[in-house]
């Protein structure tokens, strides 16, 4: 018997079969563990068993109970995943700050020509400019940020769809972690720079900050719901670049990131202020400035969030059928 085979345990099977006995890979001491943190009684092991200990019925994605610890963990993973790219995030903060300064000068010139325009004074306009630049990272105003299109293209989505958790909630939890990290690293620096260079206004008191926090979260929810719909479109279009650029045009122009929406005149202005994109940057920025009532703004954002998330849930159901038909 060759030395190569000597690793196999001797037994009755070995006598009949000349090949070495198969062993479960996880218990093969000859193979080093891929990850020192993976193994029994570690955090990761518990994380894996957490979602495997339930049996998976066929329709699980639609009837799975809401499992709070799972989603809390996904939020943390989303945060940690983006925390890996700290230099990229800081470079983004730098670029957003530079564009914030350039746009601020244009707005200052406009408000010097028309003081009190749109109910803002110059400081309001400058603050608006830096706050909306700060939203670019956490709200992901330039689009993307989700793994779904790539996973649809590679077919990995089939795996995601049989998980005992909704694909939409799963992506949303990860995206919340991403938004939290980018809020800290890409959101705060532009506003601090604006405060240092020009001076900015702040929400007043606890109620002001709480209102802003709620509207910020609602704005993120609308943003996620929209990007999720854009991501699902890959399933029907295969090449999603066109939709991505279309979404980029709509979001940059209609969110209020490039120009405050109250400046858009006439019925066109009323229309753009009622569209979902206004809920992503204009609405939370107005609550930050104190120029919009928080409760009404929140209601406006929440209705768009619910509508778009419901559409996303329908879309998730539809791609499930499509993936099954394709045999993926």
């Amino acid at each position: 018997m060759s030395t190569r085979r000597s690793q196999g345990p001797p037994g009755p099977a070995a006598a009949l079969n000349p090949l070495p006995a198969a062993r479960p890979r996880a218990h093969n001491p000859a193979l080093p563990s891929a990850d020192p943190r993976a193994g029994p009684r570690t955090a990761r092991h518990r994380a894996i068993t957490l979602r495997r200990c339930e049996t998976i019925p066929f329709h699980a994605p639609f009837h799975a109970p809401f499992h709070a610890p799972l989603y809390a963990r996904l939020v943390r993973y989303g945060f940690r995943k983006h925390a890996t790219y700290v230099w990229g995030a800081l470079a983004g903060a730098f670029t957003n700050s530079v564009f914030g300064v350039l746009r601020a000068y244009v707005l200052i010139a406009l408000w010097e020509a028309r003081p009190g325009l749109a109910g803002y004074d110059v400081t309001h306009a400058v603050t608006y400019c830096f706050v909306t630049q700060a939203f670019i990272g956490p709200m992901q105003l330039f689009g993307g940020g989700l793994d779904v299109p790539e996973r649809i293209r590679t077919g990995d989505i089939a795996l995601d769809l049989v998980r005992p958790a909704s694909l939409q909630l799963w992506s949303m939890a990860e995206d919340l972690g991403r938004a939290g990290y980018l809020f800290l690293v890409r959101g705060i620096p532009p506003v601090l720079l604006g405060a240092a260079l020009f001076g900015v206004v702040r929400p007043s008191g606890f109620a002001g900050w709480a209102g802003f926090a709620a509207c910020f979260l609602a704005g993120w929810a609308v943003g996620f719901a929209w990007r999720y719909l854009v991501a699902l479109s890959v399933c029907w279009l295969v090449d999603d670049r066109g939709v991505q650029v279309g979404s980029l045009v709509l979001t940059t122009l209609l969110s209020g990131m490039m120009i405050p929406l109250p400046l858009v005149p006439g019925p066109l202005g009323e229309l753009v202020r009622a569209l979902p994109w206004a809920a992503m940057a204009q609405a939370p920025a107005d609550v930050y400035l104190g120029t919009a009532p928080p409760l009404e703004t929140l209601a406006f954002q929440a209705s768009w969030a619910v509508a778009l998330l419901a559409l996303g849930a329908l879309g998730t159901r539809a791609i499930r059928h499509k993936v099954v038909i394709q045999g993926g």
Partner: peptide, 26 residues
């Protein structure tokens, strides 16, 4: 992509037009 890229570039013109809808001189 050709059409949308042009539209995307034109958003900067749209901003200039919105600014001048509110003022005659910048």
């Amino acid at each position: 992509m050709a059409v949308l890229g042009t539209v995307l570039a034109a958003t900067d013109v749209a901003v200039i037009l919105v600014i001048f809808a509110n003022t005659t001189s910048l």
